[in-house]
Design a protein around this nucleic acid. Structure first.
Lengths: 215, 215
DNA sequence: TGGTGTGAACAACTTCACAGCG
DNA sequence: CGCTGTGAAGTTGTTCACACCA
């Protein structure tokens, strides 16, 4: 039951685009722009205007014919759709270079995401207190801490070799959404949401493009 | 002229999958596995077996009917296709939390990518020497250094506010491929390759999934 | 008038199913 | 026999074009 609701027909790409729209609307709102038309927004996002209208139409009628969309209203609706009208708590597993950078990254808090628990297996790290006040727990504490803190999203920033095991533990602890920075394809049961952030794959795409362009 | 060659019909998703296959083949090769069938590989990658065969068929006939694929041979071919039979030099722009983590990340070197030049605008950082021996140049030096070092891929790890300007400078310097970690949609001319690594968008996807699942 | 909302046409990608070959 | 390679069928996602409405 991947998507048991009536929204099952919505392309995953639409959700990604909604997220992108919301960023532009945020900027527009800050600039004091009141109204925006799909053509204008489309141009900024490099997307077809009809695409935008269709993406929005999946969820309702938010525009005014002959005018466009009220920026603030549309932003509010998109955030509601995406579920951004609350703060999502995340658990970070793996406090290496990348994990530390993620902890220090300011964008998360701004966007409504926060790390509420941090884990590692390195004895030199476990027990240490981070600048933000969190204590690094041992991975064995995962289930308990996840349940106590109400974490809903797991972030895997371990080496690839450990990622699958960490995923299993996260699932075991009741987590249903994982952001995976490890360079492997996680095997998870139906109904889990996994998003991969994979630099190497992206770089390979660039390498291919450059190679073909020169061919 | 986005893709001027006869390969223009190849789905972008196929290239991404080739990259994923190559990782598994690498692992298999290391385990000493000699031969693999599309069904087996498909299972590991969570992909339809016909999809794999089709992806490969775009570029040639690499398998043996009734048998499968020679792991080493297929790996070699995929690497050749992707353009991984050389080391790609990258320029990093932005030595903040994320940029530093990228510099320290070991996976790049292993995969045939290396940072050959590093840039920032912060006077406190410019001129400093990094653990790996590179000196942080000022962004104004970009064009000169890029040309001297033969960098072909630009990596943007600046705040979103500066990313578009950095992109312009990279393009100005002759760069045609950009890995963008900033949370904005870069506006670039036709023919440029841009890959975005965008945590926030991924998180929004997860938030949506969790919200819908509970609805 | 001008831009939304949307069915219908189109395009792209994926999966099926089986011929063909080692 | 078994697995690849591939046309054909199916599915999904995108764009067009215009009716409709503020």
């Amino acid at each position: 039951m991947r998507s048991p609701t009536k929204f099952s027909k919505i392309p995953a790409a639409s959700i990604t685009r909604l997220s992108i729209y919301s960023r532009y609307l945020e900027a527009l709102a800050q600039e004091g722009v009141k109204i925006i038309a799909s053509d204008k927004l489309a141009q900024k996002c490099g997307i077809n205007p009809a695409q935008i209208r269709k993406d929005l139409a999946y969820f309702g009628e938010f525009g005014i014919r002959g005018v466009g969309y009220f920026v603030k209203e549309l932003l509010f609706e998109i955030k509601r759709i995406l579920g951004l009208n609350k703060v999502w708590k995340m658990a970070l597993v793996g406090v290496g270079n990348l994990g530390s950078a993620l902890l220090a990254h300011q964008n998360f808090a701004r966007q409504g995401y926060e790390f509420a628990a941090v884990f590692d297996v390195d004895p030199a790290k476990v027990g240490r207190r981070l600048p933000n006040g969190l204590i690094i727990h041992h991975l064995d504490e995962l289930e308990r801490v996840v349940k106590e803190t109400g974490v809903e999203i797991g972030v895997i920033a371990t080496p690839g070799t450990q990622a699958q095991e960490v995923a299993q533990r996260l699932i075991q602890a009741g987590i249903r959404a994982i952001l995976n920075f490890a360079p492997i394809q996680l095997q998870v049961p139906e109904g889990m949401a996994v998003e991969n952030v994979d630099f190497t794959v992206k770089l390979d795409n660039l390498a291919y493009h450059l190679t073909m362009g020169n061919a």
